[in-house]
Amino acid sequence: MDRIGMLIMPCMIVFILVYGFSKKIDVYASFINGVKEGTRSVMSIFPALFALFMAVGVFRASGLVDVICDFISPVTGFLNIPSELVPFALLRPVSGSGSLAMASDIFKTYGPDSFVGRAVCVMMGSTETTFYTTSVYFAASGTKNIRHTLKCALVADLFSMIISIVVCAVFY
């Protein structure tokens, strides 16, 4: 299963290149344009990422993460999930850069192939920055009353956190 997963990305890249060629577009020029865009978006996330890496670093070094983990460990212990995932799950809907910073902190501490490392990946990959996304989308249409949107999106986030752990437990 791991091997299939590893092959998905390279296969997709070859497919995209060949498909582009068959559609007679200038693949090289397109790629360059994409690189231009990518460079711009990496630059644009950098300042926030920097600020949040700092916050996450200080937060862990102060020992507060451990306090929170200890505090919730009866619940997480009962459910048999690593307690480090809870601060991450709380931050995920609020800040994309913040959760990236936290995920990389977890990779550094526990390793990307540990259970926590994999679970964080799946959580990160199956959710979005809910508050940001809803505010951007509704701001575009000038909507004031968003009715059940946030409630449903947050319940879905919670569901996704749980299902991520379940999927990881089944796979690994």
């Binding site: 791991d2 299939i4 997963g5 590893m6 990305m9 390793g111 990307p112 490392g117 990946c121 999927v167």
Partner: peptide, 19 residues
Amino acid sequence: LIAMRSGYGSTAPGSITIP
């Protein structure tokens, strides 16, 4: 995520795709 995993020394960075 694949990039992050390989950056932190994962032995199988792409393996999380299917989960």
